[in-house]
Structure formats: C-alpha cells, structure tokens
Amino acid sequence: MAGSQPTLAAWQDPSAAPLVEIQNVTKTFDSVYAVDDLSLTIYPGEFFSLLGASGCGKTTLLRMLAGFERPDKGRLLIAGQDVTEMPPYHRPVNMMFQSYALFPHLSVAQNVAFGLRQEGVARNEVKQRVEAMLELVRLESFAKRKPHQLSGGQRQRVALARSLIKQPKLLLLDEPLGALDRKLREHTQFELVNLQERLGITFVMVTHDQEEAMTMSTRMAVMNEGRIRQLGTPSELYEFPANRFVAGFIGAVNQFEGRVVEQHDATLAVHAESVQGELHVTTQHAVAPGTPLGVAVRPEKVRISIDRPEGADNHLKGSVEEIAYLGDVSIYHVRVPGGALIEAQVTNRARHVSASLTWGDEAWVAWSADDAIALLE
C-alpha cells in the first residue's frame, strides 16, 4: 500500500515487550569471570545466537537461563517473571543438548512423550501430541525405532521434538548441529529455521560456528571473555563490525594497522607500514591525525588483476603467493611490499580450465574506500 510504513523488527520497536531480560548478570568459577556484568534483551519469535570461541561464557549464560547455574549477581527475567532463583523444572524453558541425551531403551515415540508422561498428561493427549510432533519433524514412520537405529540427523530431530512437545516459551539449543556432518548440518540449518518460524517459539542457540550463526539467526551476540563485544543482525556484524575482535572473528578479513594522516570529508588517509603507503577508508566519525586506526576489508570486496586498476581508492602491487580453487570461488593471497598478505576472493562465474593468474605472478589488488572498515577499537 502506498505510504505504508515498513514493519519494525521487535528489537527496533520501543513498544515491544521482551521475552528474555538478562540484567547485569555475573558468574564466576574459582574467581574467573565466565560471565561479566552482562545485560541482554531477547524478543518473542527471535532465533537468537550466542557466538564465540570456547571459554567465552556463552554456554554458562545458556545454563543460567535454563536454571542449571545460578548467577552470582544480577537478574534473569522470562516473560516479565523473575526466574533467577527458580528451579529448572518450573521455568517455561526447555533445553536441547549437544549430545541429544536420548534414552537408548525407549522408542522414538517414547522419548518424545517422556516429558509429558512425567507431568501426568492424559494418555490420549500424549498420543495425539506425539503424533503431531513426529509429523512436524517428519519422523512419523520412525516412531517405533530405537535411537541406535537412527542416523545422526534423525536423532537430532527426535531430541528437537522432545524439547518442543511441552510447548516452552523459550527453547535453548547448545551446539545443536555439532554432531552432524557438513552436508547434513547445512540442510538441517534450514529445517530448524523453518520449524522455528512455523511454531513461533523463541530459540536461543549457542554455537562457535560463525557460518551457522549467520545462516540461522535473526540477531546474534559475539562474546569474548564473558562479555558481549557486539550485538546485531548477521549483516550488521559482518558489514559493520564495531571493533577489531568482531572483524577478525566473523568471516575472513584483511586487517591493517596504521595511523591517521588526514581526513577529507568522510574519507580518512591512513599510513600503514605493512603496505608501505596510505590506505583510504570511509567513516562517519571525525578522527584526529595521529590516531591509531585499524583498517579492514573483506576478501570478496578486493579486486585482483594483472593490469593496474583505474580509479581505485586503494591499489597495491604484489606477488601471488597462494591460490586455492574451491569450485564456486578462487582465493588469492598476494604479498605486497611492507609484508602484508592480502586475500582476494573471486567468484568463478564461467567454466574454465586454467586461471589467468598463477603462483609468482605480479598482480594488483584494489578496493574502494567505501568497502573498507575503520576500526577505532
């Protein structure tokens, strides 16, 4: 409709009520901070990911939401209710573990029904809900099988069905795809997202896999040393990292360290020893000359050619040191005077037998100032 306003995402809508509120939560183990004064808000219907390396605090945060750990300080609220001291079995939360934790002596249907039977739900209702859930995850024909008779992907779906059948307000997933092979993992990512959208249940997932988080999340938080280093949508974190850590953690990136020489309008000139020259980067901030600055550029933004590029804001000449042909793309590593090794990613749009550039060739790499990222932190 002409003149209609775009729909705001829940986290952009000031009138939206959050489902999860983590307020200044701290958790230590033997005086080591696993979670350090962390605050976070998650909204209904989100597929939210906590992303970080091992030991960053993401699993501890998930376990506190589940009730398996208590925070030393701070509060946890779910749907407006303070659950900080509430035991796990009273929370409107379910958790799917990385190991799936299926009962080997029970059938698929019995595994899925276990939580309902523990709560004393009537037999007919249990049967109906189990059948509906198995149909939802496409396992209705496997109802009588035992876990050892299933593939990894099928066991994963049984664990998911068991977690969802109690209709929690919040489902917590701890590395849910870690045990699957790459091809099955990629397929299951889309299955999980589609299922979450159909059910409307809020998912909070812990993962160390950047690609997984980028593919599945509405929003994600990158964690390090118990703190959130940046929070946003996958595209925001990839295209506009707030600091050097996030730029280096999310995807491949070329990073250079330098000092600001001058600023003209929105463009900074930065002297970088590793390229023996100046780099140009666009920023919305005023930055004083002499300020230390990181400059980052993603490999897919870097153009590579035999001939000197015309009109490029940044162009450097070097020697092709490494080439990797990956089918859909080729990766080139070009060493430039000053020592920097610059990665360029080229999409292979046409079929060919041999590349025009090979090891040892001289080549130019180039990118625009708008494609570079200025990193003050």
Rank of each mutant, 00 (worst) to 15 (best):
E119L: 15
L139V: 03
S141R: 12
F97V: 06
R138E: 13
P104V: 15
E140P: 03
A132S: 15
K127I: 09
E119A: 14
N94V: 09
F114K: 00
H90W: 12
E131D: 11
R129M: 09
S99D: 15
Q118P: 07
V126L: 11
S99G: 11
L139P: 05
Q110R: 15
M96E: 07
F97M: 08
Q98F: 14
S99H: 15
Q110F: 05
E119N: 10
S107G: 08
L134V: 00
A122D: 14
E119K: 11
Y100L: 01
S99W: 12
G115F: 06
P104M: 14
K127L: 15
V112Q: 00
A143K: 14
E131N: 15
L139Y: 06
Q98S: 10
V137Q: 01
S99I: 10
R117E: 13
M95R: 05
Q118K: 10
N94C: 07
A143E: 07
V108Y: 04
S141K: 11
E119D: 14
F114S: 00
Q110G: 03
A122W: 08
K127V: 13
F142A: 12
G115A: 10
Y100M: 03
M133D: 07
G115E: 08
M96Y: 10
N94R: 09
S107H: 04
A113N: 02
V93A: 08
Q118Y: 11
S107I: 00
Y100K: 04
R91N: 08
F103P: 03
G120M: 11
L102Q: 04
E140N: 05
A113E: 06
R123W: 13
S99R: 11
V130R: 09
V137H: 01
V121L: 09
V121T: 11
A122E: 14
V108W: 06
E125D: 15
E119H: 14
R117Y: 05
L136W: 06
R123G: 09
A113V: 00
E140M: 05
L106R: 07
R129I: 12
H90K: 12
P92E: 07
E119W: 09
G120Q: 15
V126F: 09
H90A: 13
E125R: 14
V126N: 04
F114Q: 01
R117G: 02
Q110Y: 06
F114H: 01
A132T: 13
H105G: 06
A101D: 01
V130T: 09
Q98E: 12
L106F: 05
R129C: 12
Y100D: 02
E131H: 06
G120S: 13
M95F: 03
G115K: 05
P104N: 14
R91Q: 10
M96Q: 13
S107P: 01
A143W: 05
V93F: 02
R123N: 13
V93P: 04
E125A: 14
E125K: 12
A132P: 10
Q128L: 12
V108P: 01
A143R: 09
N111T: 08
G120N: 11
